[in-house]
Write a protein that binds this DNA or RNA. Sequence first.
DNA 1: TTTTCCTTTTTGGTATACAATAATATCGTC
DNA 2: GACGATATTATTGTATACCAAAAAGGAAAA
Lengths: 233, 233
Amino acid sequence: MNPTTPEDSLRVASQPKLRTLVADRLREAIARNRFPPGARLKERELCELLGVSRTSIREALRELEGEGLVSTQAGHPTVTVLSTKQVNEIYQVRVALEGLAARLFARQATDAHLAELEHATRALEAVVANFAVGPFLSAKTRFYDALFEGAGNAVAASMLRAIHTKVSLLRATSLASATRSEQSIKEIRAFVAALAARDEEAAYRLCVEHIENASSAAMAVLAQADEKQAHRA
Amino acid sequence: MNPTTPEDSLRVASQPKLRTLVADRLREAIARNRFPPGARLKERELCELLGVSRTSIREALRELEGEGLVSTQAGHPTVTVLSTKQVNEIYQVRVALEGLAARLFARQATDAHLAELEHATRALEAVVANFAVGPFLSAKTRFYDALFEGAGNAVAASMLRAIHTKVSLLRATSLASATRSEQSIKEIRAFVAALAARDEEAAYRLCVEHIENASSAAMAVLAQADEKQAHRA
DNA sequence: TTTTCCTTTTTGGTATACAATAATATCGTC
DNA sequence: GACGATATTATTGTATACCAAAAAGGAAAA
């Protein structure tokens, strides 16, 4: 045991800044639809809700703006509404980056990375058997954390996390997740098997297919919602 | 002429917020090495330098942190120093995203997009003939703006812009640019020709090669710098 | 019903204050 | 001179107050 290894040292990790905690809280609340797309985020309301000053709220909002979760409409911070075009763009980018992550994982992940991914996949399967949104989001996060860790590209991981958070803006995707969860988990299982076999090409292909299926399902739900809207008008 | 088309309307675009202008200024200053990697960014110094309040500085710093240009070292905002691993990761991501942009451009760009890209390429060639860092950065930005516009994926464009800004942190890349600029412009010329021919596969391959060559050149200069450092120690 | 005007609310930016943390300077001891 | 301890200064994080500008809402008039 090398005493200077970060994992072994007694060094106390620095505490996250209040603004970071606020941004995390808001991100979570947005993902769980506490603030739905289009919702106005009023600074003073958030101050009361979170019990912090306007300064911390404003700084957290800047952070969320950078991620695209929040945009300013007529001078007002608003939870981002994604157009169909943007959704399509997001999935295109997800294919490119997650495809890269799949390739890198297959190429270079350690046995420990594989073991963690296997555990995360099992956890995901257990949650899908008894579907509930909260635990599903947590299990999905764990799965992708394991994938990105094994891929070993922090830049891609950071971008993909932002992508996943943006996708969570879509009610459509959680609806789509609930309805296609059994098929989805089969796809993930096949994907993980290819990664375990270090088959880069198969892993890439299965990863892309999984994302494209998710995209199609989300688009289908969006199209339905558009029809309902048209009927109302 | 349809009077409701955005381009024809008399609508005045909203002014950028002060914090946005500050972030833009800082981004530019970092790219031009006014604040080199590792430089401490002191809030009160920046207030004096830019003639704005601490709030605007802090909000701009949050934005730059989100982009990875600025990170907090021992509680102090600092211009990001990129490790060799990070540089490698950045180029991997650039291949994935710019490869996507190349494919999309070849697939769907209009003749107007192509014309703009051609103009931007000529401007770049003119600058390379009389090399100077400032005009080179501007011409390069124009070239990539044209590419991303024609690719029509704003999410990818936004991420790639952040990537390009991060890459500009590396003195290595501007040094590498100066020494390999003639070869580089040849690669770009071939790339643009493939895009003009709507040859998606060739465009993708040439794009990837260009980036990989840029990456190799940057790594070579980094390795030289490491050697010099080792000699000093 | 539509338009105009007035009031209220909200955001953007500035300034000040204080606590906590980090960095630097000073002093004493060996 | 080197080292360690302490004091001082500088910087960042957070809160609060203030005011201007912009946006939103409501009431009155046409």
